[in-house]
Design a binder for these strands. Structure first.
Lengths: 168, 168
DNA sequence: CTCATCTTTCAGTATATTTTGAAAATTCGG
DNA sequence: CCGAATTTTCAAAATATACTGAAAGATGAG
């Protein structure tokens, strides 16, 4: 397979993959494109390569920057802004975990804490099932939260090094 | 907070949470409802509680069954079908991981294997960056795949017991 | 076998999300 | 500063996704 085709496939599949994870297609595709591009690219480069509008490109680049996955780069002698993606995949994963934890897990845990204190007689099976379910989700969630914290703090690749040895 | 309100909040927030993970709102809500319900429920119970149509209810229950998160239950003396959700949260997580691994991670790894063998001179920086990126994603993915396999096979709660001690 | 009950399907409709493109705002070299 | 180049915004349009409800299909008690 030729590079052009391979690149095409990578970008298109990464986009589809992203949609299963609550990330929109275009955002994932721009990220994929930057990941496999050796040099920083401009908005126009990206627009042309992916055949998308200026507005769409701009919005999604901004979102990628918010997620900490893409950086604005200023090249001397150039008026335009250039963009580049973090290439260290471990850092990418860490960054995504960090953001999703903050945006999704933490608020959910706060809610569960509150819901666990529902009024009512625990002998009522409706109350009991509710409290038990909420409580077990909360406990698992808290544990996941701690584990992810550790992972984020780890300098070295937790997933790729520690786990291999420990669990084999 | 009263049980009715707490239940309402749990269901509604679980639905919103689900949408960030590629699961549709209704499917997540039905799951949430069954998780906090002590007894199995019929389609009509679910329709009424969530104010959704018969067709929608039916489709989403089926999907939950496909995912292995909900079971059809036949109560003796009853003509109707009843539904119940697995309440052990660890099992729920394991089941979800298993399905998503099969549906998403494995096909992606197959693609990456193929793409890593792209034609072209590795001295060309475009080829090099592409191969390096694909290769590092593939390696991390393979590792995740193995780790998840181990997690799925584990009888005991890998997340809640092993990791606490090992990484503290 | 019959028929009332329950389940499934799916075309049409509604809703939500994404994308466009042109206009407004900003930036910076001269 | 000026004005061309560049970036950003956002209302409208396009697309994708989810939901409804009625009709068709399946089931099982009698």
């Amino acid at each position: 397979m030729k590079l052009t085709e391979a690149k095409q496939q990578f970008i298109s599949n990464w986009g589809a993959f992203g949609t299963h994870w609550g990330i929109n297609r275009t955002m994932a595709q721009i990220h994929a494109l930057l990941l496999v591009s050796p040099d920083p690219m401009t908005q126009d480069d990206i627009m042309e390569e992916l055949n998308i509008s200026r507005g769409n490109t701009n919005m999604n680049i901004r979102e990628l920057i918010n997620w900490g996955l893409v950086d604005r780069v200023l090249l001397s002698g150039e008026r335009k802004e250039f963009f580049t993606a973090e290439k260290d995949i471990w850092k990418v994963v860490t960054q995504i975990v960090k953001e999703r934890k903050k945006r999704e897990l933490e608020p959910m845990l706060q809610l569960l804490d509150k819901l666990e204190n529902v009024e009512g007689d625990k002998k009522d099976k409706h109350v009991k099932t509710f409290v038990d379910t909420v409580s077990s989700i909360r406990k698992l969630g808290r544990q996941a939260d701690k584990t992810l914290d550790r992972m984020i703090r780890a300098e070295e690749s937790w997933f790729v090094s520690s786990l291999i040895k420990i669990f084999k």
